[in-house]
Structure formats: structure tokens, C-alpha cells
Nucleic acid binder design. Structure first.
Length: 221
DNA sequence: GCGACAG
DNA sequence: ATCTTGTCGC
């Protein structure tokens, strides 16, 4: 593949065309050959009033969920945030951080949506397609679609629907916290995405991979 | 035409 | 996303 965005000409209209083309390559089946050994957590933050994009990558052992390596990459911010085009702004930094990890993750969790996107190519799905890695999107807010009211207990979940199809799940990951929006990115099924997030929750609203990356990207750690 | 709109 | 301490509620 020629780069993260193919032959994108830089315009918003063309970015949407590129998304439609890449969305056709998304694979929504669990085809992981074996039990994942390494998990990856990815998120982006900003410095200098947005002038610098700060990408964080965390590698965790799948069995213990303990971090074994972290990477932070800082690059000049290339474009403003445009709803629906988040990956064009954040993906380059995230992939750079991925390439610096000592091991390639077997399954990746990205802060943002997977296929729960107008053209079914949120940043987690885009990340998966260009890297070829199984990926899952974990977002804190809805971009498109809607869902029924959610129960108050941790673990309760309902489908996130858009144009008559399920694009993800609204998940109460922790009591008294707003639900998470979970959606498959690439090489993961709808059920597989939910199961993977449930398995990596450890008492916080965010699953460990994304929670640790979040702390690094937002300067807190 | 009028809102909504990941991070 | 980010600017930012204490504070209300469970």
C-alpha cells in the first residue's frame, strides 16, 4: 500500500473517497490464529495549544495486562480536527509509535471508533487496515448512530445502531460512569470486540490498553 | 434547511 | 483534544 492514505490529494472530499475505498478492506471476523499474547493500547494528546501531536503506544502482556513497553512520539500537528476525518489527523503519529514498540501487538485497542463511523472507517478500523493488525475502537462519545437506554450495572451493553445495522456497542464499563462505545476495527467480530474489552477491564471506565495510553498521551503520567 | 459531530 | 481546583455526590 502506498502510505496510510493511498493517493489522497489533501482535500476533505478526497479523504472521504479514500475512506470508502479502505472501508471495503475491513474484515469483520475473528481470524486471530492463536490466543493473543501481546495487546497494544493507543491514544493521542496535544501540546502547545494543539501545535504538537503527541501519540502514545503501550504494549501489554495479554495474560497479566501489565505494561511491558511504552512509546511517546511528538510530531507537528498537520491538520485541524474534522468530525469523521480524525484518522487523517492522528493516524501518522500513532503508526510511528507502533513501529517503535519492541514487539508487534497481536490485538490493538485504539481510543476512537472502529466501524462506528459514517463511512465505517473510524480511526481504529483505519489503523487496522493499514497495519494489517486486528483492532478495536473504544470511544467515549457517539459519532453516529444511536442506542437504547443502558442498564446501570457494570458490564451491561446494548447495540449501537446506524442505518439499520449494528455498528458497535454501548457498554457500561463501570457503574456511575457514562457508557463506552465499542466497535470492531479490523479482523475482529462484533462479539469479539465486546468480549476483548470486557476481558481487559480492571475497575476503571477504560480498558487497560486504552487507559494506560490515555495517561501517557495526556501528559498525566 | 437545521442540527449533530470520535479527538 | 485543551484551558484548570475545588467540590458535590455516591
Amino acid at each position: 500500500m502506498s502510505g496510510l492514505f493511498g493517493d489522497w490529494d489533501g482535500s476533505a472530499a478526497d479523504a472521504r473517497r479514500v475512506q470508502q475505498r479502505l472501508a471495503a478492506e475491513v474484515m469483520l471476523r475473528d481470524d486471530a490464529p492463536e490466543a493473543p499474547r501481546w495487546l497494544g493500547g493507543f491514544d493521542v494528546g496535544f501540546e502547545d495549544a494543539g501545535a504538537i501531536t503527541r501519540a502514545a503506544a503501550v504494549l501489554l502482556a495479554a495474560d497479566t495486562l501489565q505494561p511491558v513497553a511504552t512509546e511517546v512520539v511528538r510530531v507537528p500537528t498537520s491538520m485541524p480536527y474534522v468530525p469523521g476525518l480524525l484518522s487523517f489527523r492522528e493516524l501518522p503519529a500513532l503508526v510511528a509509535a507502533l513501529e517503535r514498540l519492541p514487539h508487534t501487538p497481536d490485538l490493538v485497542f485504539v481510543d476512537g471508533h472502529g466501524i462506528a463511523h459514517p463511512r465505517r472507517l473510524g480511526i481504529a478500523a483505519h489503523f487496522g487496515v493499514v497495519t494489517g493488525l486486528p483492532s478495536i475502537g473504544v470511544a467515549k462519545n457517539v459519532l453516529c448512530g444511536r442506542h437504547d437506554p443502558l442498564g446501570a450495572l457494570a458490564g451491561e451493553h446494548v447495540p449501537l445502531l446506524h442505518r439499520g445495522e449494528q455498528i458497535g456497542w454501548a457498554l457500561r464499563s463501570k457503574v456511575r460512569c457514562n457508557p463506552l462505545l465499542v466497535s470492531p476495527g479490523h479482523r475482529v467480530s462484533m462479539q469479539g470486540a465486546l468480549d476483548a474489552v470486557l476481558r481487559t477491564l480492571r475497575g476503571y471506565r477504560l480498558p487497560e490498553p486504552t487507559r494506560l495510553a490515555d495517561r501517557l498521551a495526556s501528559r498525566r503520567d
